[in-house]
């Protein structure tokens, strides 16, 4: 891990990780609060996209590009989950 290098890239990676964690918490708050179901679906989609960003930053920090395959899979599965939620919401009707 190159977090302790002291170089500019290491400091940037630390700051980026902190900011991404704060963003994850924001999305989590909307997931808990969100008054309707589509609010929560949108927050979950955003959460998955941010996790893909975290995977990208982690793969820079650990100097190994092996985790990018899981980023591809996560993007695919989150899209499918969002589409499934949307169809379920539309079929369920007004509530």
């Amino acid at each position: 891990m190159i977090f302790d290098d002291g170089s500019l890239l290491a400091a940037t990676l630390t700051a980026v990780m902190v900011i991404l964690t704060i963003s994850l918490f924001c999305s989590l708050i909307r997931l808990i609060i969100g008054p309707t179901l589509p609010d929560r679906v949108v927050a979950l989609d955003q959460f998955a996209t941010m996790v893909v960003g975290v995977i990208a930053v982690y793969s820079i920090a650990s100097q190994s590009p092996a985790m990018l395959r899981s980023a591809i899979v996560l993007a695919l599965v989150s899209f499918l989950g969002t589409v499934a939620f949307a169809r379920y919401t539309e079929k369920r009707g007004t509530r």
């Binding site: 589509p38 169809r87 919401t89 007004t94």
Partner: peptide, 10 residues
């Protein structure tokens, strides 16, 4: 899809 589903379910 989400916007359409949310709009149509009010």
């Amino acid at each position: 899809m989400i916007g359409r589903a949310a709009y149509f379910t009010g």
